[in-house]
């Protein structure tokens, strides 16, 4: 059940599970995926799900959770977190995303971008719009999930996007933080 006190992650599990029962595969992306991986560092106000597989009666499943449609968004009477379903396909920049992480908790399921793709997704704002907010979010995800993030793959992607200097800045910030830690 979704309540005013539900966290973004709790809401994400509820929505993904309810949609899954209706035959949808909904993958958490964007800032909400970053919040899932780094909840103490960054809090998104909404949940972005991209539908990798469509089922039927999704509206009804969301209504049963307490969500009502308002245009392209879904609002909950109690929860501050609104839902959005950006048009697919699941992608970062021009590159399609074909795999994601699946988490299970107390009988609920949640599909979410992998930590590496969540980093790439946040960095995309930095690469394409010079949005330093995206850089900070990518740094938060990396720091929270460093063992699960493939830096080489992010580097290769930035190179393909002809933005090696942006990756270099990202890596520079990571190294600066490591040096700071060692100095303590």
């Amino acid at each position: 059940m979704i309540a005013a006190s539900s966290t973004l992650t709790e809401v994400a599990y509820e929505v993904c599970t309810a949609l899954g029962r209706a035959g949808f595969t909904a993958v958490l992306t964007g800032g909400s995926a970053a919040t899932f991986y780094a909840p103490e560092a960054y809090l998104s106000d909404d949940l972005d799900f991209v539908l990798a597989l469509r089922g039927t009666n999704g509206e009804s499943a969301l209504r049963q959770l307490g969500y009502e449609r308002r245009g392209d968004f879904y609002l909950h009477a109690s929860s501050r977190f609104l839902l959005e379903f950006p048009p697919g396909p699941l992608a970062v920049g021009d590159e399609l995303v074909r795999t994601w992480s699946t988490h299970r908790h107390r009988g609920k399921v949640l599909h979410v971008l992998t930590p590496t793709d969540s980093c790439r997704d946040r960095l995309a704002s930095f690469l394409f719009w010079n949005d330093f907010r995206g850089l900070e979010q990518a740094l938060h995800v990396y720091r929270a999930q460093r063992r699960k993030v493939d830096l080489g793959s992010i580097n290769a992607w930035c190179t393909r996007e002809r933005q090696p200097d942006k990756f270099e800045l990202f890596e520079h910030r990571l190294r600066a933080r490591s040096r700071g830690r060692k100095g303590r």
Partner: peptide, 23 residues
């Protein structure tokens, strides 16, 4: 690149386009 404070200040403003009509 060396000025983290400047980068943090730049991060205070969203530059990525936001979808219209968001409640």
């Amino acid at each position: 690149r060396e000025d983290t404070d400047l980068q943090m200040a730049l991060a205070s403003r969203r530059r990525r386009p936001r979808r219209t009509g968001k409640p």
